[in-house]
Design a protein around this nucleic acid. Sequence first.
DNA 1: GGATTAAAGTGCGAGATGGTACAAAAAGAA
DNA 2: TTCTTTTTGTACCATCTCGCACTTTAATCC
Lengths: 203, 203
Amino acid sequence: MVQKEVKPRGRPKSYDREEALMAAMMTFWKAGYAGTSLDDLSAAMAMNRPSIYAAFGDKRALYLEVIDFYRRRVRASFDRLFDKGLPLCETLQAATAKAIETYVEDQKGCFVVGTAITEAAVDDDVRAVTAEMFREIEQVFAQRFREAAARGQNLIAPPEVLGALMSDVVHGCSLKARAGQNREEIEASARRSIDMICGRGTV
Amino acid sequence: MVQKEVKPRGRPKSYDREEALMAAMMTFWKAGYAGTSLDDLSAAMAMNRPSIYAAFGDKRALYLEVIDFYRRRVRASFDRLFDKGLPLCETLQAATAKAIETYVEDQKGCFVVGTAITEAAVDDDVRAVTAEMFREIEQVFAQRFREAAARGQNLIAPPEVLGALMSDVVHGCSLKARAGQNREEIEASARRSIDMICGRGTV
DNA sequence: GGATTAAAGTGCGAGATGGTACAAAAAGAA
DNA sequence: TTCTTTTTGTACCATCTCGCACTTTAATCC
């Protein structure tokens, strides 16, 4: 299905679109949208500016595409984990642990919480996609609780409430990671919170 | 004690320091540190650039002072509320409601979560003060739970865990507000989460 | 091989940005 | 009034920023 042997006409592209997006994502991730210059992007993506413009449009269009790129990666990562069919609490702990792993790397937190949120106040498109992603995360978690309840598991609150709480906990990890808190503390705190949310009280 | 009658020598200042800081705060709050220009600040503060430099130093120094200004205001606001001596759950609900009120105003969220977090990845001083504030918030909430427990109230988890959760919930409200979610939804979600955290199960 | 196509690479320009030098202004002090 | 002192306000500069016109390079098609 990956029909790539269509032999395009002119000079071949010297970049790989996914790799370029990845490089752009890393650059925006570090310094945010406003804090990243096209020179920074050009250097990181190993593309000169006109090539970036031809491939992605202007800086803002590139940023929006990077957000979507990030979103697809997060979604894929969660889906892969959920497909394992682990019990509720194990699933949530594993998902959070995986998130934390990327958050503490270079102390960048979540891409959306770390960069898009700042831009959301001045850019309607960024705000819209950010809101969508927040909703989606809540829904995804709520669905875990719903399915667990359907399997007969007792919940300490309605799935929507627990989903919102899970979302808050994960986003909290992102904030702490970008604030430089060390991995062990973040993981320990999250683990205890999630245990509580799953009804594994520590008291 | 406010000894101000010291009759300074030269031309009197045409600005009030607190008002100037407030205006700078609002400006940074909207567009973030990198997204705010000195022209923006100059216009909002009604001070020309040389005056800003004389009064606060460069842009970064001003931003750091604005963070501290915000911190003192948040602290004062919480202290005022906690002094009322309301029961645990009422206190937490009121504190969160008050936070949400400022968060949804102009859809800006919390100043730190909305702007400082982005800068934290590239500025050690911002990161340090951000981390401090996050810790302080958790501690402040944990203390509420500890005192309630001392008064004989049952907790569904240790105070530290509940304090961390409360912090996550409030920061979650900030994220949702800046993502443009409407006030009613944010309030309703937070109320239910906090009820759960206080042991007022909804199931 | 020559023509054609498409991308890479060079260079540039209009404007914004952070920061500052310097003169004008407004107060008290002599 | 005249001299200081301190702040305001104008004007400016060096640099960075985004975006694009134009040339060069590398591939396919004829």
